[in-house]
Computed example of a mutant assay.
Amino acid sequence: MSDITAAIEEGAKKSSILWLTLDRPRLAWHAWHDGAIYLVTGGEEQRLPGLEALERVHVTLRSKDNGARLVEFDAAVSVVDQAAAADAVAVLAKERLNARDSEHLTERWARESVVLRLSPETAESSQTG
């Protein structure tokens, strides 16, 4: 595992928020699962306009302790089939604090929201071997 990959994983696990470069820098909550960042947008959830239409997005992870920038990277954006990725959606739902309908959160997401996977693109992951 490269230093950048390790920094991304550590930063994403330690803090449940990140910054995305969209129409302007946008703060978003997320969950780290299986080597990627998962987040939900739309419906009653956070507004991340245009993210689902992008092929890639610039991500900034900051320290939970002092807000210092830990790492920046580009990530490939893909829409998640929520039924096929139930384990990832369950991890994401567990991170969703203060939901009005915790018991039925994933059902609501299936109806009105989009779950996205952000796969970090690093020099290591773009090399062919």
Rank of each mutant, 00 (worst) to 15 (best):
K64N: 06
K14L: 08
L20G: 06
S16Q: 13
A76F: 11
R96K: 14
D23R: 05
L18V: 01
A99C: 09
T41Q: 09
S78W: 13
E124D: 14
E44F: 11
H33C: 03
E121K: 13
E112G: 06
Q82Y: 03
P120V: 04
L105N: 03
R69T: 15
E52T: 08
A31V: 08
M1N: 15
T122M: 04
V59H: 00
T122P: 03
R26L: 10
I17T: 14
W29G: 04
R100N: 15
V77Y: 00
E124A: 12
A110R: 14
S113D: 10
S125K: 08
R24L: 11
W19P: 06
T41Y: 04
R117M: 06
W29N: 09
A12K: 05
A76Q: 15
R108M: 10
D101Q: 11
A88P: 04
E72N: 08
S78P: 10
V71P: 08
L97K: 14
D81V: 02
I8D: 00
A76Y: 11
L116M: 07
A6T: 13
T106D: 09
G42F: 08
L54V: 00
S63Q: 11
S2T: 11
G50Q: 04
A31E: 06
L48M: 04
W29P: 03
L51E: 00
Y38M: 03
P25Y: 02
G67Q: 09
A31K: 04
G50E: 03
H58A: 13
V40F: 01
T5P: 11
R69D: 15
L118G: 02
S119T: 09
H104T: 10
T60L: 05
F73Y: 07
A36F: 01
E10Y: 14
D3Q: 14
A84P: 06
H30W: 02
A85R: 04
T128G: 14
L20H: 06
V71T: 13
L118D: 00
S16F: 10
D23M: 07
D101V: 08
T60P: 02
S126E: 13
T106R: 09
E52K: 08
P49S: 06
P120C: 07
A28G: 00
D81P: 01
K14W: 05
